[in-house]
């Protein structure tokens, strides 16, 4: 079975000369399909850099990153964009919905960009919104939705194209604890029902408690990799 994501001796440096910063140093990691993996660690540990590399938003300085079996090293900006459009979904801390598009249109946008033929895009987007508990809210604009509802739209947008991997960057950080718990429950349900592979970065103990696997980073290195029941 092809790993959803595989990193081999990945190094990522910023700056040059005396000011060089090693954000990641020799990180190797394999994430299998259907896993729910949490990246934990203090600020500056390299979580965001690692998510950027897994999400093909950036490329490593050394080593290799394979997403759904495709090596991203040497890919052009256009090829990386195509890979993101087709195989990767994103959920952001600040939801990052397009404010001038309705909930349904935000979800449809992901389908349009994926480059696949989906049949009736509108019906598919509405069905996806219904599956995240937003039935009947498809015509609302982001500013007409609560934070939790916006994050549900973001989750629907990430999953609607059936990606190999969903990257969630602190998905509960901007939500109150109750809403955060609801969103987390939704993510876990979709992970189990739809078999979607999730990689989350978080500081949130509640998120870590729900994860099957917690990878802890410190100073650009993986310091622990725990499987949980």
């Amino acid at each position: 079975m092809v790993a959803a994501c595989q990193l081999e001796s990945v190094r990522k440096t910023y700056g040059d000369g005396a000011g060089v910063v090693n954000a990641l140093d020799g990180v190797s990691l394999v994430i299998q399909p259907r896993e729910f993996t949490v990246l934990a660690g203090p600020s500056g540990s390299g979580k965001t850099t690692l998510l950027n590399l897994i999400g093909c938003l950036d490329q490593p300085s050394a080593g290799s990153v394979l997403v759904d079996g495709q090596n991203t090293s040497g890919m052009t900006s256009r090829q990386l964009a195509a890979l993101r459009a087709d195989r990767i979904g994103f959920v952001f801390q600040s939801f990052n919905l397009v404010p001038v598009l309705t909930a349904a249109e935000n979800v449809e946008m992901a389908l349009h960009l994926s480059g696949k033929k989906w049949g009736d895009v509108r019906d598919r987007a509405r069905a996806m919104l219904a599956s995240v508990g937003l039935d009947g809210m498809h015509t609302r604009y982001p500013n007409q939705l609560s934070g939790g509802q916006q994050q549900r739209v973001a989750i629907a947008r990430a999953l609607v194209k059936e990606p190999a991997l969903v990257i969630a960057d602190e998905p509960t950080a901007n939500l109150d604890s109750h809403t955060g718990e609801e969103v987390l429950a939704l993510v876990r349900r979709l992970n189990e029902e739809k078999g979607a592979t999730f990689v989350c970065s978080t500081h949130d103990a509640m998120v870590m408690s729900r994860a099957r696997r917690v990878v802890t980073l410190r100073d650009g290195h993986i310091v622990s990799d725990e499987e949980r029941a």
């Binding site: 459009a85 397009v98 960009l113």
Partner: peptide, 15 residues
């Protein structure tokens, strides 16, 4: 800027 980043993350090409 963030919206552009989001669209790029969703797979929108530079062009």
């Amino acid at each position: 800027i963030r919206e552009i980043g989001t669209l790029r993350a969703l797979g929108m090409a530079e062009s």
